[in-house]
Computed example of a mutant assay.
Amino acid sequence: MAAAEAFVRYYSELMNYAAETGDPGPMLKASEAGCETCQTYADFVKVSNAANGLLTGDYREHLTKVSELSRGQSGHLGGSAVVTVGQYVSRQTRSASPFQSKAATYTREFALSPQDGNWVMYEMKQDEQ
């Protein structure tokens, strides 16, 4: 279970890297091809990211707690994590109206899948606390 928790924390950093650079490649390599939420996030940061100035503020997520890790019969491992994000602003284009996001704490539920001796993100969803 320690390896799964370490992966979840690493994946959060991959998401932060994608938001900073606009390059979701490393994050997608650590994701199952069918992870819709992963792809949606990747599509967002390709357009709005800190490198191109369309994502500003305290957008980095901070993962504070990983819990409820359990392995299912399919081999997938599920759990949840507490994630905090500060106040930030995103835009679709430089001329678009800014979208203000307030600071928030989320519970991210996730499922991991084993792949070539490692974990990959199978699916995730977030609910604001």
Rank of each mutant, 00 (worst) to 15 (best):
H76E: 11
S97D: 13
T56R: 01
D58R: 01
S80A: 15
N52G: 06
P114L: 11
E109N: 09
T105Q: 15
N16R: 00
S74W: 02
L54E: 08
G22E: 09
N118S: 13
E123P: 09
K46M: 14
L14S: 00
T40H: 13
L63V: 07
R108M: 15
K29D: 08
Y88G: 04
E68G: 06
S97C: 07
S74K: 01
M27H: 08
E68H: 05
L77K: 02
L55A: 08
M121W: 10
D43H: 03
Q92M: 13
D23L: 08
E109W: 03
Q87Y: 01
L77T: 04
E36I: 11
V85M: 14
S67W: 00
Y122M: 14
G117W: 13
Y59L: 08
E109R: 06
D116N: 11
S74V: 02
F44R: 15
A103P: 04
T84S: 12
P98T: 07
M124V: 14
S12Q: 00
L28T: 04
M27V: 12
P24L: 03
G86W: 03
G34M: 10
F44G: 04
N49Q: 12
L77N: 01
H76C: 12
A103I: 09
G75R: 00
Y10C: 01
S67P: 01
L63M: 10
T40L: 13
V82I: 11
R91L: 09
R9I: 02
G22I: 07
D116R: 04
Y122A: 14
Y10E: 10
K46Q: 14
Q73S: 06
Y122D: 13
A3Y: 03
Q39E: 15
Y41H: 15
Y88N: 05
A104Y: 10
M124F: 15
K29I: 04
L69G: 07
R71W: 02
E36G: 11
D116E: 13
A96E: 13
Y17S: 09
R91P: 04
E128G: 12
G72P: 03
S12F: 03
S67R: 03
H76I: 08
Y41G: 11
A3T: 08
A81M: 05
E61V: 02
E68I: 03
N52D: 09
T64W: 01
D116C: 03
F110L: 13
L112F: 09
Y17R: 00
T37D: 15
S90K: 08
V85T: 15
L69W: 06
T56M: 04
A33R: 13
G75I: 02
V85K: 05
Q126W: 06
G34P: 10
H76T: 10
E128C: 10
S74G: 06
G75F: 05
A96M: 06
A81C: 07
V83W: 00
R71Y: 00
V82M: 05
